[in-house]
Design a binder for these strands. Structure first.
Lengths: 176, 176
DNA sequence: GACACCGTACTCGGATACCCTTTGTCCGAGTCCGCGTGG
DNA sequence: CCACGCGGACTCGGACAAAGGGTATCCGAGTACGGTGTC
């Protein structure tokens, strides 16, 4: 029961990217600097978010990352599953079958009650995560966070975001 | 987001121990055999349950483990926390402070909104686990489980449980 | 002066080592039962 | 025949290695910009 620390980095980066204008991008190096993280390692997690269609990456100079969809449609569950994997935390190894007395497999068609209970709890966990949208995080930060910290974050984003000229070129408007 | 497989073993063992009579004990070796696990390694997890006051251990010949309290008062949460540790899965590293611009610490007195959301989700997870008691597990197994498997389990318990003579000696009735 | 080409710098992406947690195993401390011996 | 002492065997408990996953890092592929040469 331990989440990798990449989850925290991924959520913070996603929240930061939610503040960039339009389809501007922000380089991974800037995100890493914003949180004092290793740039090379942060790219690993950002890449997972890109694979999960949560972020989009633009290569080349003036490239970087941006959200692939509006922050209202990104939940904490999406971020956690993208980084930690979609498989449940509790995996029933069916050790009940490994006893010394061998019973016909038909006795185990019903799922293990322990497994059912653990999965039920995890569904509650995921449901709670799915209730929080990324837009809620940034809104709560803007409303209740410290104004100095919020202003510094906005200034950092404004300083490092790179507008994309492809915005004026609506020929390829993300048919993903 | 991955639970150790010791959790599964611990819950199964606790459920098995819930079926022993009175204050009889069952050796760890028998529990390991019951699920095809390594006896030496299983003792590690059983020892964690003992430290958490969920099980009691009786040393010496005819010794073993038994529940330290009735199965109605043991929840899945107790078992999971005993094996996996009581600390939450998401630990906020406060990376928001590690930015290049240093702000006074007074700006971070309010807890991180991301951390709050993650902990809220984990509270839901733990609440769901706390709703399931060990007695529910065994009752559900007796009622809906396969009769052959249930009978085999009962026979195995009856064959390996060791009655304690200290039951007839109420001089030391567990003042823990 | 304008256009095309090329070199450069910057970006992400994947492949590669290191370290810690988890897993797995072993041996020692403690305790009770059974047997041998002495009264 | 009975009581006492001792050895053995069985139990749990903690200390000791090995493996896997997470962490951290580096280098390569790709792309846009800027300079330069030519028309």
């Amino acid at each position: 029961m331990k989440l990798g620390e990449g989850v925290e980095a991924a959520i913070h980066c996603a929240a930061t990217l939610a503040s960039v204008d339009g389809n501007s991008t922000m380089p991974g190096a800037a995100l890493a600097e914003s949180f004092g993280l290793s740039p090379s390692y942060l790219l690993k997690h950002l890449n997972m978010l890109t694979t999960a269609r949560i972020l989009e990456s633009v290569p080349g100079p003036a490239g970087g990352y941006r959200l692939a969809k509006p922050a209202e449609r990104i939940t904490l569950l999406d971020l956690v599953l993208a980084v930690e994997g979609r498989e449940p935390a509790f995996r029933c190894g069916e050790i009940r079958r490994n006893g010394p007395v061998k019973i016909d497999a038909s006795a185990y068609v019903k799922p293990c009650g322990i497994n059912a209970a653990m999965l039920r709890a995890e569904r509650a966990y995921r449901a709670a995560l799915a209730e929080t949208r990324l837009s809620d995080i940034v809104a709560e930060y803007a409303a209740e966070g410290d104004p100095r910290s919020f202003a510094a974050s906005c200034a950092f984003v404004a300083r490092h975001q790179r507008p994309q000229k492809s915005s004026s070129n609506p020929r390829n408007p993300k048919q993903t």
